[in-house]
Each structure stands twice: as C-alpha cells, then as structure tokens.
Computed example of a mutant assay.
Amino acid sequence: MSNSSSITEFLLLAFADRRELQLLHFWLFLAIYLAALLGNGLIITAIACDHHLHTPMYFFLLNLSLLDLGSISTTLPKAMANSFWDNRAISYYGCAVQLFLFVFFISAEYCLLTIMSYDRYVAICKPLHYGTLLGSRDCVHMAATAWGPGFLYAVLHTANTFSLPLCHDNTLDQFFCEIPQILKLSCSHSYLREVGLIMVSACLLFGCFVFIVVSYVQIFRAVLKIPSEQGRHKAFSTCLPHLAVVSLFVSTGTFAHLKPPFISSPTLDLVVSFLYSVVPPALNPLIYSMRNQEIKDMSKNVAHGRKHQ
C-alpha cells in the first residue's frame, strides 16, 4: 500500500491462525456480549419501568448502561463475526465508523462518570439542596454535557486519524480499529498532530479524574461525620458502586494509553485493549446490582416478567 487512498480495508490480526482458537474466541466474546446485553438491558428496563427509580442517580445510571451497550456493541459483534467466519477484514470506512463510535461512547462515559461523582457529592454533602441542584431539567442538561463533548471529541479524533497518510501496511494487531494501531501505519510526521490531540485529551481527562477524587474526599469526610453506623453504611452503599466503576474504567483506560513503550507487545496490547473496551461494560451492571437492593429486586421482577408493585 503506497498511501491511504489505495487502502480499501484493514486486516485485524489479533486472532490466532488455528481454527480451534478462533472458535474459542468467538464463544468467549459471545458469552461476554450476552452478559453485557442482559445486565445493562435489565438495568435500563428496571429504571424505565419503575417510577420509584426516576431519580437523578438512576437517570445517570440508565445513561451509563446505554453507553456501555453502545461501546461493547461497537467492537464485539464484528470481532465475533470475524472469528466465526475466519475472516480478518474490515473495510476502510467501516473502520472509521467503528473508531468514531467507540471513541464517542468511551469519552462520553468518562464525562458521565464525572457527573455521577458530582451527583453523589451533592446527595451526601448537600442533601437539603439535592432537589434544587439536580432537578429533572438539570439532569438532562448534565447528561447532554456528557454526550455532546463525547461526540465532538470523537469527530476530532476520527477526522484527524483518517486524514493521515498511511503507507506502511494495512494490518492492525488488534481485534478492533484502535487509534494507536492506526498511527503505527502512518508514514508521515503529521501523526504528531494526533499525538498532540491525545495529550491534550489526557490533560482534560486528568482534570476530570482530579474532580472525581476531590468529590470523594469530601464525600468520605461527610460520611465519617454521620453519627449512626447504619447511616454511614447506607451512605457508603450508594457511593461504592460508582467508585468501583470509576476505578475499573480509569485504571484500564489509563494503562492502555499511557503505558511505557518499552513494555509494549502485540499480546500485551491485545490484553489491555480487551480489559478497557470489553470488561467494564460487562462488569458495570454486576457492580451496581450487587450493592443496590432496589436494582436487584426490580431486575428480578423484570427477568420473571412480573409487574413491580
């Protein structure tokens, strides 16, 4: 391939050549995808059907489940199809669409997790002002500030990445189209523009991370001042799931994009990408359900087809 204009497709070479391993990958991805669909689908249905759950916390949780379904549906179905049919190709424009959607959902999710930390901060530290600061209209506007910047962020990254001249090859050592893998194919120093954009984005994400940390420092200080043990336990139970999801999302995503180059390898890159792109959407429903009795009860009713009383 002499340049990007002659590339009509990319080859995703993350999977082994042996047919048995390809089918193993297919069944593994299928199980994870079905678990993510079931878990996030139950949460979305439970929150939508039960008016008792029409609160800011559950509204943001519904948005989180939508983003999780979007991100995992962007990568796994194509990976499963390639494994099952022993095919490694994805079209040039298909790769661009996949990259755009994945960056959109992931970046919007990070913004939403930041907003959810603010929701918990107001609920614990300023409970008397909770209804005023987080009214229904305010919640919609805050959710829009997560989805909107995520869209713009994805447009910038996708346009910048696919404007680069690509001349090294058309093979990606990954199971989906990922920005670092495409940058490796660039034959021009113009790829530094995308690197610069990633660094600016990293600074913004670090700012969100600092906001989350400061919020939870204030939350823990407020919780420790609650006189009753039962009150402290109830307050912690509403915060720990979100904190666990943030920790999982930030740790996997940060290591994926900021790991030192000298420890990089195709196998390690594949494992890390799997951890940050597939594991959080599948585990988030489990994390929230384990610590939330209302979600567990309503999900059971939805699963058994009974109307919640």
Rank of each mutant, 00 (worst) to 15 (best):
R19L: 07
I295Q: 06
V250N: 04
Y121H: 11
M80C: 11
F151Y: 11
P165E: 13
L248W: 02
A81N: 07
A143D: 02
H54T: 03
P281K: 07
L23M: 14
G207D: 06
S117H: 01
S83E: 08
F84Y: 14
V279S: 02
Q174R: 14
R88M: 10
P266T: 12
N63T: 10
V217T: 09
F151D: 05
S228Y: 01
S73P: 09
A36D: 02
I182L: 15
I124N: 00
C177W: 00
L183E: 05
T74E: 04
G94I: 07
C125M: 06
P260G: 06
G131D: 11
T145Y: 11
L21D: 06
L268N: 08
S4G: 08
S277M: 12
C239S: 09
L240C: 06
A202C: 10
T45C: 10
N284Y: 12
H168V: 12
N284R: 12
M57N: 10
S299P: 01
F249S: 10
V214K: 05
C139D: 06
I198D: 13
N170E: 08
D169G: 03
R88L: 07
A31C: 08
K307S: 13
Q309W: 08
L28D: 01
F104R: 00
H257T: 12
T171I: 12
I198F: 14
S4F: 06
A46S: 15
H242S: 12
D119C: 13
R18S: 15
V122G: 01
L66C: 12
D50L: 01
C203N: 04
H51L: 06
I198T: 15
L286E: 05
S186L: 10
C111Q: 11
V210P: 00
